[in-house]
Amino acid sequence: MNDNRKTGVFIDSKRYNENRNRLPPELLEPYAGQYVAFNAEGTCVLAHGEDHFAVEAMLRATGVDPETVVYARIPGADEDTWL
């Protein structure tokens, strides 16, 4: 690993999770089964798509550095239980 590696944005996961839990469920419903990018604070969705690369493309198209976000998969509507 070289010393010029990019090290990404600092994510405070405690704050991120607290903010994620405050988001109204209705906000995430349209993204069920999709991948999304949250801002580093977990307060809003910046991009969405069918896979990681689709989300990354949307971020770049809107001028957002993909290394400053958190990628997440929103569970599908039929995923009541994870086994």
């Binding site: 990019k6 990404g8 991120y16 999770n17 958190v70 990628y71």
Partner: peptide, 16 residues
């Protein structure tokens, strides 16, 4: 679930 940042030789990415 928590956000983790992965750092590789030429990039980084944060994921739940």
């Amino acid at each position: 679930i928590l956000a983790v940042t992965l750092i590789g030789p030429s990039g980084s990415c944060s994921e739940d």
